[in-house]
């Protein structure tokens, strides 16, 4: 059933986008986009290590491994920055490349046992996701990736429901947040955990780089035109879902990678917004400049 697969794929890509939009909005506002990139790479080590330690590819093991390594990445980065007195971006770069390299080496060393390779980590292949289904009580309930992502998306919404106010306050002004008794550290590490979980759940389907795209691109697109955090979140989710749908058809039409097409469409939304939408768009500002020039040119009455 071709159309059934299509629906599953679009649903999976949409969930990646929605989850990415939620964590992405806060990462972007906290200027930590590259930490998202870092975590999405270093979780590879988490997955491999968890698998080698437990010989299990079960979902909870994978999520716990990834979650721990995500926290490790955030903590190590912070350690190098504070104690090692290294620039923040440099700390990020040192840590994630190291953990990613470790992951790749482990995969090479245990090539026979680990069912993962660099390529699938970078690209992912969402087209195959519908075939890896979950059977519960003899009943095929659909793709595994879908259910995992649904769970992670629910967790992200839970975080949003419970914590949108402290998260917003911490993102806006950590000093003020601390002054009214909000624990900046707690919400930071909670967010990092959710970034790790989102990444690892999306891994199989869309690959590391495209998770990064879904975390930063819709959130930044919405950031350019939003007046409120709520608007930014809704806008980012909207862009993400629209990218998932359009991306799927673009890939089907041109016969290319679906995940890449979704990210490309998201990039398209970003560029269009940058150029044409809102008061700060390139177009609006060009118009304003022209008007100013004209006003300057016409002699005062």
């Amino acid at each position: 059933m071709y159309w059934m697969d299509a629906i599953w794929i679009i649903a999976i890509a949409s969930l990646v986008g929605i989850s990415g939009a939620i964590v992405g909005a806060f990462l972007v506002l906290r200027r930590m986009s590259m930490l998202g990139d870092a975590i999405s790479h270093s979780v590879l080590f988490g997955i491999v290590a968890a698998f080698l330690l437990t010989s299990s590819r079960s979902v909870p093991v994978m999520l716990i491994g990834a979650g721990l390594v995500g926290l490790l990445t955030a903590w190590l980065t912070d350690f190098l920055h504070r104690r090692g007195q290294l620039q923040e971006d440099a700390s990020i770069g040192v840590v994630f490349t190291w953990l990613f390299a470790l992951g790749v080496i482990l995969i090479a060393a245990f090539a026979g046992q680990v069912d993962l390779d660099q390529e699938c980590v970078l690209y992912g292949e969402i087209a195959f996701a519908p075939f890896d289904t979950w059977v519960v009580g003899g009943q095929d309930i659909g793709p595994r990736a879908f259910w995992i992502l649904l769970g992670v998306t629910a967790l992200n919404f839970l975080m949003l429901a419970v914590g949108h106010r402290p998260l917003k306050t911490v993102a806006f002004s950590p000093a003020f947040a601390a002054s009214i008794g909000i624990s900046v550290t707690f919400w930071h590490y909670l967010l990092m955990s959710m970034v790790s979980l989102t990444t690892v759940a999306s891994f199989d389907a869309v690959g590391a780089i495209l998770v990064v795209a879904m975390i930063v691109v819709p959130a930044n697109t919405a950031f350019m035109v939003s007046k409120s955090l709520k608007g930014m979140l809704v806008g980012a989710m909207g862009v993400a879902v629209a990218s998932a749908v359009l991306g799927y058809f673009l890939a089907a039409w041109l016969n290319g990678s679906i995940a890449a097409a979704v990210a490309m469409v998201a990039g398209g939304f970003f560029v269009v917004t940058l150029l044409f939408v809102g008061r700060d768009s390139v177009l609006a500002r060009a118009r304003q400049r022209r008007r100013q020039r004209q006003q300057a040119a016409t002699p005062a009455a």
Binding site: L29, A171, F172, F176, S179, G181, K227, S228, L229
Partner: peptide, 26 residues
Amino acid sequence: YVPQRSEVDWDFPISVMDTVLMGRYG
């Protein structure tokens, strides 16, 4: 506590009202 103005990003997507409401979050 009123931090220095330069300590926050004024591009943050938030309205004046919502910023002031933060004062009630405590």
